[in-house]
Design a binder for these strands. Structure first.
Lengths: 129, 129
DNA sequence: ACGTTGTTTCGGGAAATTGCGAAATGAACT
DNA sequence: AGTTCATTTCGCAATTTCCCGAAACAACGT
């Protein structure tokens, strides 16, 4: 009568079960970003993105660290995160059009940031137009 | 600014993101059952199980068909369901103790049902004790 | 010290989810 | 026709999710 041992997996899947968080994972699959870049690409309030990221961090799929004033985000390279992430990419194949557009916008924001520490990443997409 | 193309995958994952529905999938991995058997094994109200099953059916992971008075349920053998289901079993490995207990109870309910059509599956677990 | 900027936490309102019992449906059996 | 039993639908309360703006933090620059 108890389904407690499946709770951890269910909780992780619940975090995955949101279009924005899937988009974030796909974005990070192409490389690390800072929180404000993610917010700009997704067109969401920074506070919203921050909350999505705390969810993702709780699953262990994503890691964050401070770089100066910014918080950088990347996929976890932990062995325990691998199976789930690797299972995920093929399932997202159908959204490739949108995902590559996201990646393109992220590249625009980072077009002149050879050194991720030195270069403030906060430019908006309009400034680059 | 639109994350619509990931909506279908997110919706499917949202259905998976529940301990009871994961348990149902694992149960069906061992063979087909009827709704009342699932309810008995899980210790949940039939209406609750029915609602979980409509969710699972909507994802295409599960198929149902009527057999006399009963509704039988099984995993879909559709090709589109395969990748997700195959990705799922390894993720549930940690809950094997509970899942095998579920399978054992299902076997008890079915212990004398050689012919799934002829034999009423509605016996409670107490009747078998 | 002060202001600026990136990030998080908090408060709140709209919407979705979960579980159940009660009532409605459907299919068998008498 | 009437009964029984498996299942679904409905109504409802409790809980959670989602997004935001405002306020609080944190780290840099002057």
């Amino acid at each position: 009568m108890n389904s407690d041992s499946l709770r951890p997996l269910a909780d992780t899947l619940k975090v995955l079960a949101h279009p924005v968080r899937l988009r974030i994972l796909a974005l990070l699959h192409a490389g690390e970003l800072c929180v404000c870049e993610v917010a700009e690409v997704l067109g969401l309030a920074p506070s919203t993105v921050s909350e999505h990221l705390t969810g993702l961090r709780r699953t262990g799929l994503v890691r964050e660290w401070k770089v100066g004033r910014w918080v950088h985000v990347a996929l976890s390279d932990d062995a325990s995160a691998r199976p789930l992430l690797e299972a995920l990419w093929p399932l997202m194949a159908g959204a490739e059009a949108e995902l590559s557009r996201d990646r393109a916008q992220a590249r625009i924001l980072r077009c002149d940031t050879c050194d991720p520490v030195a270069c403030p990443p906060s430019r908006t997409l309009q400034e680059h137009a």
